[in-house]
Design a protein around this nucleic acid. Structure first.
Length: 571
DNA sequence: CGGCAATACTG
DNA sequence: CAGTAT
DNA sequence: GCCG
């Protein structure tokens, strides 16, 4: 018989009305319902009342009530189940098994998985990282790629974590609050796409707090009292999620902002423009071109954002970053041998994959930003001629000449005839201090990196918008267009500039807030007190002035640097 | 309650 | 200046 | 939305 010699333990108890039918079926098929701890053994199967599971049946919800409803001793039962690694089934599956006359225990979770606890013996650590990208959406590549390493970077934490009810010992102190983290991330995305940046920021900070919490959050109040950046509103939402397994209405509001997100993922389209288009009921870029073409040629860089929408959402391997760096550096050395260029950004923070490549230009003892800007412009121009640079998002007159045909082509493709707009008047006296570029390796150069991106996920264009795409087809081995950002700094500001361009964005905000709290101001130009420069050349000195010990670039990742503050305070 | 990092480029 | 970007 |  199907359930021969199997014992069934029903949780939270086997007294609930609806259990009657099930237990009868089990008994008829050779199984036995048990009702004491002593009967639990290797042949026991745990049945969980469906009312305490989320819709996907992957997690326990309403755990407070679940615990309260136990007739047996909760701690003891859970410990036994965990110790023996018993499988847990939603009660509803019994009916299904009977119908199919098949029971495959292997497809079900252990109690640790249901509780969201990772067992030490289980080395397939299922780290949850939704990654919006960011930043990113995170829109900005920086924010989205920061999570990539979390799993490898997080050293196995000391297992001396003291929990209030510490019976469930063999667990990693890394609590899995992924339901909460995902909700915070979604709320961040929602408010960010609505342009409510400060509210969005609150959710981002709350998310970071929760991610760094080493234990499972048990209640909204628990979170509000013990974690930073959790106030009454978020606490309430946390409680709802813990009780119900989800946040009512969240998915619906996310769906409402999906068009905003689609637009905002395009370079040059921010919250305002996205909202504007959404108000006009536009859903695709094609809608915009057809119904409000002014919005497109008003800011031509949006056309480039559209054309490279997909490529610019793809990640770059460290190896490929290095290849780009070498190309730029060798060109720079030909044009201006005394100049230096350094690769900063997420690459230097050690990310395995980067959203873009940030390059900082400078020359020993050079304080002349006009000269720095000119040299960068010359490098861009040379690389444009070599067809390495596909497009630029800022232009001086010379670069503009090269870009004109590109932009004309884009206008033509999307059916807007506005040729004259491009002949704009450039500010003669001004040399740009930054250039954002789209660049491609040659097919030959790119070939060795191709395998890295076979299964890569990235934000796709809607089909009706694909006619403008200049992104590489994912099935082809053609090079992907990459975002390369050029910046420059005065020699005397090298330290402050590195600090700025290494980031991460959240790290910069954090350390600058710290400066503010000490009556100082930190920018890419230096650390100031009442507009008077304190330090700008030496990165380490800046840390010292802020009462911090030096934080390695690799630690300037979300949630990593706070430890350093603790250390400096404790020592 | 006001503040939330600070700055560069475009039109 | 507002908007978007880093 | 949270903090001081």
């Amino acid at each position: 018989m199907l359930f021969d010699r199997l014992k069934f333990l029903v949780l939270p108890n086997n007294e609930t009305g609806s259990i009657g039918v099930i237990s009868k079926s089990i008994t008829q098929d050779g199984g036995k319902i048990i009702s004491t701890c002593d009967e639990i053994d290797q042949c026991t199967v745990v049945l969980i009342n469906d009312a305490y599971m989320n819709p996907q049946r992957s997690q326990l919800v309403r755990q407070e009530i679940f615990k309260r409803e136990f007739t047996l001793e909760y701690e003891k039962v859970i410990h036994l189940i965990e110790e023996k690694g018993l499988k847990c089934l939603p009660t509803s599956t019994i009916a299904k098994c009977l119908k199919e006359n098949r029971l495959d225990l292997n497809q079900y979770s252990t109690i640790s998985q249901l509780l969201g606890i990772i067992d030490i013996s289980d080395d397939s650590v299922p780290l949850s990282n939704g990654t919006s990208s960011e930043e990113s959406t995170d829109v900005s590549p920086d924010t989205t790629d920061d999570n990539v390493h979390q799993s490898t970077e997080s050293k196995s934490p000391s297992s001396t974590q003291k929990e209030s009810d510490g019976k469930l010992k063999p667990i990693l102190p890394q609590g899995d609050n992924s339901l909460l983290v995902d909700a915070m991330d979604n709320l961040f995305t929602k408010y960010n796409s609505e342009g409510d940046v400060f509210r969005a920021r609150s959710y981002k900070l709350a998310k970071a707090s929760i991610e760094n919490t080493p234990f499972r959050i048990k209640s909204g109040d628990d979170a509000r009292k013990n974690l930073k950046h959790i106030g009454p509103s978020i606490a309430k939402k946390i409680q709802l999620i813990l009780d119900q397994g989800y946040l009512a209405g969240l998915n619906e509001t996310l769906a409402l902002s999906s068009h905003l997100n689609y637009f905002m993922n395009c370079y040059g389209v921010g919250a305002n423009l996205a909202k504007h288009w959404d108000t006009l009921k536009f859903e695709t870029f094609d809608d915009v071109v057809k119904k409000a073409p002014q919005d497109m040629f008003h800011e031509w860089s949006i056309l480039l954002g559209w054309a490279y929408y997909e490529d610019w959402g793809k990640k770059i391997s460290r190896k490929e970053c290095e290849a780009h760096f070498q190309i730029v550096r060798s060109t720079l050395k030909l044009i201006a041998p005394k100049y230096e260029v350094e690769i900063l950004g997420s690459y230097i923070r050690g990310n395995e994959n980067c959203g873009d490549i940030d390059l900082l230009f400078f020359r020993e003892n050079c304080e002349d930003t006009a000269e720095l800007g000119t040299v960068m412009g010359d490098v861009v121009l040379e690389l444009l001629k070599q067809k390495y640079v596909q497009c630029t998002l800022q232009m001086n007159p010379e670069i503009g000449k090269y870009m004109e045909s590109v932009i004309q082509g884009l206008f033509k493709t999307c059916g807007i005839q506005v040729p004259k707009i491009i002949s704009r008047r450039w500010r003669k006296d001004k040399t740009l201090k930054k250039y954002f570029l789209g660049v491609k390796l040659t097919q030959h150069e790119y070939a060795q990196y191709y395998s890295h991106r076979l299964n890569e996920e990235y934000q796709k264009l809607e089909n009706v918008d694909k006619y403008m795409s200049r992104s590489s087809n994912n099935a082809s081995a053609l090079p992907v267009c990459r975002r390369l950002d050029f910046f420059c700094c005065k020699w005397s500001e090298l330290g402050a500039a590195k600090l700025h361009y290494i980031g991460s964005k959240e790290f910069n905000r954090w350390i600058r807030l710290r400066a503010i709290s000490q009556g100082l101001s930190l920018t890419q130009h230096g650390l100031f007190k009442d507009d008077k420069l304190i330090e700008s050349y030496d990165e380490r000195e800046i840390f010292k002035h802020l009462g911090l010990k030096y934080i390695e670039p690799r630690s300037r990742i979300e949630g990593q640097w706070e430890h350093h503050v603790m250390e400096t305070h404790n020592i």
